[in-house]
Design a protein around this nucleic acid. Structure first.
Lengths: 241, 241
DNA sequence: CTCGGTTTGTTCTCGATTGCACAAACTGCC
DNA sequence: GGCAGTTTGTGCAATCGAGAACAAACCGAG
């Protein structure tokens, strides 16, 4: 859309590739844990659950970090991917909304190990103030701006009920946050330049339900299931005219 | 059952469209709450955060449920989409792994309101047995097969630590579950015919971090930023105001 | 040094998806 | 009844992503 500066050294990595880089990173970590120093694209692809050609093409966007005839050095590649996706620096994060989900997120160990540090838990509910979750005290929501400024927070997580999500997002943007991970089932509207990613639990289930109902329907139509598992045993009685 | 019924024209809905149908459904619900009986594709698209042309094309895969010059009847369209994605029937669901995340999922009200009923919470930890979460007792993991058979469960949710996820998935498939929503940060291997969707919290943050570091880099390259919300060339999937 | 075996990086092709643009169809007014 | 205004449904072009195939590059043996 917008023309980039001519001295743009940042290669433009396709969005689909960006989404897979963390997966590769995790697969490499798993290999390193097993003391594997070098791996082929085939092995790494298997560990990551993707096609090996796709893996090689993805990695080629970062540069030529492999050795033909040999494969990839696990540690070296791990560093390169990590650097590319900003994993070599520590990202301060705030979580707003310390309900069930917010507490689960605060306790999730995968954040810290990947370079994210939760600098504050915020909630508008006065009754939560003073409570500690995962060793971090819950602070009042109104302190958001101060915290963002003080810790240079760029990433915010929203885990409040849907009706409050837009207000929280507005406050985050106002405070200077430019990337938001939204767990509330709402469409957030933010100014350009602010990234929003949405994680919607019920939508994922609904997508599964769609495929599930198609499976049931296909079987009811008399088409034999393609796989030999015979695992599907759904009663399609609920089909209404 | 014949394959030529007028209502089952839904043979080839693109995956990208399927992923958006639940979003449209929620947007329609929001409109209905505001007592809006009819809406144009433009309005609905705005509420769902997508392009109106895309919305119309998506809906056209389901059939011609709009009226030219008028728009879409909110209730009617809501029913049609809901029926298409299997929302008119109730889907029994089991959740395995009642840690922080599992408890948050059990308490999440969005499931029941969208046609999903949690029939059991399972955990291998003996200390959790007897505990109630969201009014549902936690039962031992070994009862999985019986529960799946008894309630005709087709959808399972995995919220156990990564090392246990594959074992749980195997047991689910063995028991007859054919759709899995996986929150564990692991690549699951399942037989063909079984659908797996993955929700990975730290990957989402890492994707945000990638874009964030590019923003910082672009700014450092001399591209002027419009105050805190400097525009960047990357097109977010977020919505513009 | 040369050669066979292996593996990467890249090219090519094809299918999926997006967004535009516009004809078809409907409502309300005169 | 006819017309002006509005909105849907869809053909089309352009872009993006996936996977196969292959030449280039590397290692080790002889």
């Amino acid at each position: 859309m917008t023309a980039r500066s001519t001295t743009d050294s940042a290669r433009d990595i396709p969005e689909a590739t960006v989404a897979r880089l963390p997966v590769y990173l995790r697969a490499l970590l798993s290999l390193a844990d097993r003391n594997i120093a070098v791996c082929s694209s085939e092995e790494l692809a298997a560990a990551a659950g993707v096609n090996s050609a796709k893996l090689r093409k993805d990695l080629s966007y970062l540069g030529s970090y492999g050795t033909r005839g040999v494969g990839y050095d696990v540690d070296y590649l791990r560093y390169q991917i990590s650097r590319e996706i900003g994993g070599t620096q520590e990202w301060p994060v705030v979580i707003v909304g310390i309900g069930n989900l917010g507490q689960a997120l605060a306790n999730f160990s995968g954040f810290r190990s990947r370079g994210f540090r939760i600098v504050a838990l915020l909630d508008a509910d006065r009754r939560l103030e003073g409570k500690e979750v995962a060793g971090i005290p819950v602070r009042p929501f109104r302190e958001l701006a101060d915290i963002v400024t003080e810790h240079q927070v760029a990433i915010g997580v929203i885990s409040v009920p849907a009706p409050a999500a837009q207000d929280v997002a507005d406050a985050m943007v106002q405070a200077g946050i430019s990337s938001i991970l939204n767990f509330a089932p709402t469409v957030l509207s933010v100014p350009p330049g602010v990234d929003v990613r949405k994680v919607d639990l019920s939508i994922e289930l609904q997508i599964l339900a769609y495929h599930e109902s198609r499976k049931a329907q296909t079987e009811a139509d008399g088409v034999p299931s393609l796989d030999g598992t015979g695992a599907v045993a759904i009663d399609p009685d609920g089909v209404t005219a």
